[in-house]
Write a protein that binds this DNA or RNA. Structure first.
Lengths: 147, 147
DNA sequence: ATAAAAAAAGATAAAAAACTCTTTTAATAT
DNA sequence: ATATTAAAAGAGTTTTTTATCTTTTTTTAT
């Protein structure tokens, strides 16, 4: 198990790919996204459907349709995708699930976990969906051939 | 989803409880452990069975039997429980599952995730199962009534 | 030796996550 | 208007995780 569920990883990778691919305008189809980010197409379709309902990504049907991102969406933090898909379990509660553990009565590991989780949250909040589109990423290519 | 699977949380809580409860000698039964750490008894039994096979906890059958920890086990890092139960997915690979991402060709988030995961690993490695038994924990009580 | 206690082992069940397939709806080009 | 394209919606299926139940084995006390 990684930090995120598989569903969430697909959601992040898919959204990053849409951002990059449609940076100059246009749309990209589920088929193309799925192929590029190595995810099962119909499953990804469901995930993006959900993100679309939540206005995290945009889509249109019909010829020349597909997924894209508007300006607002590009500015959204990664944290919104993670929260939408995995909830906030990564950021809240006791790290080891102790009922009696809280801010007031912290378990011995509480503050250390809290520190780590705050860092995760900070990273996901400061990173926006559109952050890695341009030359900013210094030649690093986050996706495979055909990106 | 938190950092760990539920199975792993039960394993950690259970082992901590065994450590504390048998610090002065003796054994503790699954029944008592399950009640104290708020986990389903037969499920916890399976988990501890597994940890027992891996020599992470000790057990004996029969009257006055139950679970306990020997000196070696008390010194083991929490990381061993986590690895045994959840594997090393939390510490390795790309944070968002990018195939093309690696040390040599890192994705834009690679190093930030790596840093966070190293911290998690360090915390789990430096913390031993027996660490929170004595006065060390400064009056903090990690378990409920009857601990 | 026998009975009782307690974990180990094995087999099964329920719930959640991951994944697939089919039909419907919306958009566009002709 | 019609055909075509592509996502949305809905209804499954499969796999994994979480949880339960029953039987067996081991240990101890009597």
């Amino acid at each position: 198990m990684g930090l995120f569920s598989k569903t969430c990883e697909y959601a992040i990778r898919g959204t990053f790919f849409i951002a990059r691919k449609t940076a100059g305008g246009g749309r990209v189809s589920i088929k193309d996204i799925a192929a590029a980010i190595d995810s099962p197409e119909p499953f990804l379709a469901k995930i993006l459907q959900d993100l679309s309902r939540r206005r995290i990504v945009q889509s249109t049907k019909g010829p020349n349709g597909g997924f894209y991102l508007n300006e607002d969406s590009l500015k959204r933090p990664l944290a919104e995708i993670v929260e939408a898909v995995d909830g906030n379990g990564l950021f809240t509660g006791c790290g080891v699930g102790l009922k009696q553990c809280s801010e007031i009565n912290p378990c011995p590991l509480h503050n250390e976990f809290k520190n780590i989780r705050n860092q995760i949250q900070h990273l996901l909040k400061k990173t926006s969906i559109g952050d890695f589109n341009g030359d900013i990423n210094l030649g690093i290519i986050p996706f495979g051939i055909g990106n």
